[in-house]
Amino acid sequence: MKKKNGSQDERLPRCSSPVSILSIRDEPKENAKLLKTDVKRSFQGDIKAESTAVLLMCLADNGSAGYVATERVVGRIGSRSGSFVIQHGGAVEAGSVTDSFGYVVPGSGTGELQGLRGHCG
């Protein structure tokens, strides 16, 4: 497949990577029902990277929760290096994920990850 500029579009294969949370900093808002949280994570496996995310969370009195996040990932996917941004979110009720979404922000890839597209979950 050709890109708009005429160069060859080399698609990356589907990949997965275990993720470790390196740190979390909560900033309570409005009686701790709404939180702004900063999270640093480490990816291993197909993706070798570190990320920094900002999460906005809602914690309900019954233990249910929801979040939306914007996360910059810097590192390697296979042999390619660069950075990209993902946006993701979800909801939890009674300890089970009830809804989730995630995608690479179009145009956010840099370096050898320029043009990266896809979904995450």
Rank of each mutant, 00 (worst) to 15 (best):
G95I: 03
A60P: 05
K36G: 01
K40A: 09
D38C: 07
F43A: 03
V92Q: 02
C58H: 12
E71W: 14
N62F: 06
G45L: 06
G45P: 08
K36V: 09
L56C: 03
T98M: 00
S96Y: 08
V74A: 14
A69N: 12
D99S: 12
G78C: 08
Q87C: 07
D38R: 14
K36F: 03
E50I: 11
G78L: 10
E93M: 02
G89K: 06
K40C: 05
A69D: 02
R41W: 05
K48Q: 12
S83N: 05
K36H: 04
I86R: 02
S81C: 11
T37S: 13
F43E: 03
G63S: 09
F43Q: 03
L59N: 10
V68D: 09
A49R: 13
S96F: 06
A65S: 15
T52Y: 14
D46W: 15
I86D: 00
Q44K: 15
G95F: 07
T37Y: 09
L55E: 06
V68S: 15
G78M: 10
L59S: 08
V92E: 01
G66K: 12
S81E: 10
T52C: 06
G102L: 01
G102Q: 05
K48G: 02
F101W: 08
V73Y: 11
T70C: 06
G89R: 05
F101I: 01
T70V: 15
G66L: 03
E50A: 11
V54E: 11
K40D: 02
A53S: 14
A91T: 14
G75Q: 12
A60Y: 10
S100F: 07
T37Q: 13
V73C: 08
G75M: 09
G63E: 06
T98I: 04
A65L: 03
C58K: 13
K36R: 14
S83M: 01
G90C: 01
V39D: 01
I77N: 00
A69M: 08
V97Y: 05
A91M: 03
A94R: 14
V68L: 11
G78E: 04
V73H: 11
V54F: 13
A94L: 05
Q44M: 10
